[in-house]
Amino acid sequence: MTSAETATNVPQDARAERRAKRIAKHIESFTRQHGGSADGVVEYVGRTATRIVLVGADGTWGDQVAPTYAIGRRAAELSGVTLHDSFEGELGLKVKTSAYEWKRMAGIQLGG
């Protein structure tokens, strides 16, 4: 038994699966609200987090953060998201940006 298992008497795999299912529910909610399907990419954010970038069927984008790559990938799989290797090409073209994003991007470029 590992120290994590003995501390709580819950296997690490079971805990990870519960976390993945909890994140998957949020992804499924996003999917329902944005056209019934979504594409996604699981990306490392740093040592302690992974970001699941989502693009709904209507072009709206969002994200979820998971504590590990394995949990993020599992959550995406459980939710039925179509996973891509990178956020380029066709997936990037699906994203619809609003006036808010354009204004914010312009503000950042202009130092605002």
Rank of each mutant, 00 (worst) to 15 (best):
G72F: 01
V65I: 14
S79L: 04
V41M: 06
H34E: 04
W61A: 11
R15D: 14
Q12G: 03
A24S: 11
S37Y: 04
W102H: 06
T50N: 08
D85S: 14
H26N: 15
T60N: 10
S79I: 05
G111W: 04
A70K: 11
L93S: 15
K96Q: 11
E5R: 07
V42W: 00
R104M: 10
G92D: 08
F87A: 11
D63N: 14
L91I: 12
A38C: 05
P67S: 13
A70F: 03
A7I: 08
I23E: 05
S3A: 14
A99N: 08
V95T: 06
V95E: 04
E88C: 07
R51E: 14
Q64M: 12
E101Q: 13
R18N: 10
Q64T: 06
A70E: 15
R47A: 15
V53L: 13
A76H: 02
A24V: 05
Q64I: 02
D13C: 01
Q12R: 07
T82P: 00
N9P: 00
A75V: 03
G89I: 00
Q109C: 04
R74H: 10
V45I: 10
V41R: 03
T82W: 00
I27W: 00
D39T: 09
I52A: 04
L83S: 09
Y44E: 15
T31H: 00
E101C: 00
Q33R: 12
E101P: 00
D13V: 13
G80K: 02
P11E: 12
R18H: 06
P67G: 13
T6Q: 09
D58P: 05
R15M: 14
V65M: 08
G56S: 02
D39M: 06
N9D: 13
K21G: 02
G40W: 04
V10C: 06
T82D: 11
L110N: 14
R104T: 11
G112T: 11
A14L: 09
G80N: 05
